[in-house]
Each structure stands twice: as C-alpha cells, then as structure tokens.
Design a protein around this nucleic acid. Structure first.
Lengths: 252, 252
DNA sequence: GCGGCGGCTTGATCCAGGTCATGGCGATGG
DNA sequence: CCATCGCCATGACCTGGATCAAGCCGCCGC
C-alpha cells in the first residue's frame, strides 16, 4: 500500500489535453459518437475538448471519487478498469459495476447531487473529467450532446435493471463473461480472450454469489469446454453455448 | 375481460388539458418542481402544459405501451397504478416496478429507442404523455426542465441499482412496504395505511421471491406486530422495526 | 530462505427460500 | 344457489448456493 491509497488523494489533474493520440482515445469513448462524426455536430468535438480535463494516473485501489462527495462531474474511463461499489449499513461491500475504457462513471450521482458510491481503480487508470454544469450548458446548445447524455443515462437504467433480475449462478456467469468480452471487443480488443482485472471476490460480489460458487462454476465451465481459465486469463471457447446459457439475461 | 384487454388498444387521447384541478394533479407530479414554483422558471409551466397530452382512462391490464414499440414519449402517472414488466426468453414475466401518481414511466426506453418493457394499468389509470422530442427541445431552452430530466433519469439508475442488491426476504418486504408507504405519503396519502393495487404474485415477482414466501413473511410480520394485513389492505404498525429490518436497503 | 498473507480452490455441511400439493374464500356467472 | 376460477394461505419437502473448513500457491518483506 502506498500513501495514495491511505489518503485517497487523486493525482493532480492535467488540464492540457494531449492531442497526440486524442483521436484514438476518443474514437472508443462514450462521447465518441458525438465528437468524432464531426459532420453531424460541427464544433461539438472542439467544445467538448475544451471542457474535458484529463486526470490520472490512478493506481490500484485509488479513488476517482468517493461516496458522499459532492457531485460535480462525470468521468469517462480512458485507460484501465474502474470498479464502483457501495458499503451498506452493515459494512458489507456491494460491487455495482466494472467500467472499461470509453465507458462513463458517475451518472448515478446527478440525482442525489452527491456520489452514491466509490469509484476505485482496479489497475492503472486514466480518466476524462467532464464538469457536469459545463456539460449541461453545452448540452443545451448542442442537441447531439444532450441526446447522448439522455441515452447514456437511459442505458444505465437498463443495465441496472438487467442486473436486478433473478437468475442462476450459471446464467449470471455466462452473461458476465460474454458481456465483458463483447465490451472489450467493442473497444477494439480481442473478442474471445480477456484478462479479468478484478478478483474472484469482486466478481462474486457483483453477481451476488459467493466467491466459492464463482470458482466452482468457472471450473465446471472449463470442464464442459465452454471456456479456458488460467488464473485471471479467460478464453471463451464456445460462445454459442455460453450465449444459450445466458439467453434469459442477454436477450433484450 | 373486455375487448380493450384483448386488443391492447388505448382509449383515444384527450389532448385538451382539463384545467379544472390541474394545479392539484401537477403539484404531485414528477415535473411539479419545475412547473409549479413558477417564480423559478417562468413560462416553463405554460410550455410544459402545451406539449402534454392527457391520456386515459386505461382499465386493468391495458397497456400504456408495450415492449418493442418505437419510443416516442415518456409518461407521468396521473391516477391509478402502473406496473412495468418484461417477458424473458423463457416466457417468464419479470416485474420491474410499480408507479404511483406523479411518477414517470418510460425513461428506460430512450436508449434502445424502443420500449424495453410493457407498462400495464393495475387499476383505472390516467397518464400525461410527454412527447420526448418536444420535451428535449424544450429542455434545451429551459435549464430547469433539462435538469429535472437528468435528475429523473439518474434517480432511476439509483432505484434499479438498489433493487439489484442481495437481500433476504424479510429485508426486501420491509423495504418494499416502507418505500410504498413513503411514496404514497409524498403524494398526500396516509403514511401508514395502504391498499396494495398489485397481487401477491406481482409483489413476489418484483422482489424476486416466491408468492408463498411473500404470504409467509407478511403473516410473520403481522404475528410480530409489525403490520396488520387484511387482504390487500396493509397498516404499518411499527415503522421503527420495519426500518431496522430494511436498514441495509433503504439507508442510502 | 522463510514466514506470513491474500487470493483462489475444493470438499463437507447447512439453510433460506423455492417447489409441490392442498384447501379456503370471495367474486362472477349461469 | 351452486359451479368455476383466480387469488391467497399453509404445510411438507427439496435444493441451489451459502457457509464453514482446509489447504495450495504465488508474492512480498525480512
């Protein structure tokens, strides 16, 4: 553990957008569809880049924000993986989600006006910080930005709703693996080989299972030829059967 | 069963806002905070009333919208109770929520651009229909309206997230009863006596329990003096102990 | 090198809540 | 007035996954 973990201090933001591989990062970002097809929304790219702050790096277990802090911004993950979680009244952790590069974090904080969860780096993480008041102002002028915000918020309702469903351990794990692989694939990574950035405990907590159950089901999936597991490396070997297992969850 | 149920046809909308008890309805609506304190947002009330359509009545089991229909509007419940639900790949119903007067329905449809669930009347229901394109246009001009939309969407993420948690049957039912009573109370109804508009089956499904479990837990709560149950009439007799049971869920 | 520790696996046992079966009861219709 | 049906309650039993327990393995600090 280093002192960053203990104090929860974030590294100093770097407000200067490094335009080196800007296009690459933005092409996979949640706002990419607004920013990049500049034909549609001339000027939106430039204005978004004006208000965005690049922040990082955060090291493992450092917080991008913490539960209870006043809400002021939403974040897009630029690199690394972010875990969101709450601690309930009994002191138990509840993992809410894992966020890949290009995905947004903090949308659930608009209503309560303070962050309702912690956002923690699972590895080395860089984020884009969008001041929410500034973004809302921009959204009022740029219909595409406003629409994208509405869509992102609405999509998160759908994701949370899906997670609230009543499923077996097999269904949950199959859906988890497929979902993660597909999200990696959407960001340009391999569609069938993935490295889990989170512990078995985090996976179990997220899926509302015991860690032992996660171990056992992964083992069985491997024995059945559905996947190959080596520590945190997973290869999907039979997407069809995994999709069949997950059909009640993933079929929207 | 009447033919409305079979065809799913909605009654003809009545686009003329009946200003009789307009103020009363709007004072408890999700947009009330934007509409009514007219000091803050002059003109917003009038403009919202321009674009709203009053629709209804819907009778029991009629659909305000159905899964798969193209998204075009969100709805505020004016009277009655609305249940949202999906049917999964295996044909099983999944109840997503119960919506009281003043609450919004359909926010989860913005992203997929089609309704991801059915919205059904549990009794006689009237709604306000907000064309979403019109509302978004208004939101771009009226910061208060935009903010309210962001807040409503964000709040729904929080509600769905809460529902996704891992809780016991006792915790779920205690939280369900308290939540419902509080929402009724916020709309001006009695805070401790409520009439459940939905069946035990719907409650069980919503809470991801078996109907038998709901019966048994309600019975036990009654034996323990927490509530009094008579069919669908429930009286909360010991809010403190109910809140204690529900502390892991409701403590945000 | 070695002890300690956190993450992971595996086996044995337990239990909350699901499932199955039965019956009551109120509403509706003939 | 009785038959039917949907909803609800209650008892008996079962099971998926939690919990408890033990051990392994890799990593870090000393």
């Amino acid at each position: 553990m280093n002192e960053h973990v203990r104090t929860g201090r974030a590294p100093a933001p770097n407000p200067i957008a490094d335009d080196g591989d800007e296009q690459h990062f933005c092409s996979t970002c949640a706002f990419g569809s607004v920013c990049l097809p500049a034909g549609v929304e001339k000027g939106a790219l430039a204005e978004l880049h004006m208000l965005v702050e690049h922040v990082g790096p955060y090291r493992t277990d450092e917080a991008i924000f913490r539960s209870g802090e006043r809400f002021g911004a939403i974040f897009a993950v630029r690199a690394g993986m972010v875990k969101t979680r709450t601690i309930d009244a009994a002191g138990r952790e509840q993992v809410l989600g894992f966020h890949l590069p290009g995905e947004m974090v903090g949308l659930n904080a608009i209503h309560p006006a303070k962050y309702p969860c912690d956002a923690l780096a699972l590895d080395t993480v860089f984020v884009c910080r969008f001041s929410f008041p500034a973004l809302a102002t921009l959204a009022a002028r740029m219909p595409g930005v406003q629409q994208q915000l509405f869509r992102l918020l609405s999509a998160d309702i759908g994701k949370a709703t899906q997670r609230a469903g009543d499923y077996t351990a097999d269904e949950r794990l199959a859906a988890f693996l497929l979902d993660l692989a597909d999200r990696y694939a959407a960001r340009g990574f391999s569609a069938n080989a993935l490295r889990l950035a989170m512990s078995r405990n985090d996976i179990a907590n997220y899926l509302r299972l015991a860690a032992e159950t996660v171990s056992r089901v992964l083992r069985r999936f491997q024995d059945q030829g559905l996947i190959a597991v080596d520590g945190r490396e997973v290869v999907l070997r039979d997407r069809a059967r995994l999709a069949h297992l997950a059909r009640n969850i993933l079929a929207q």
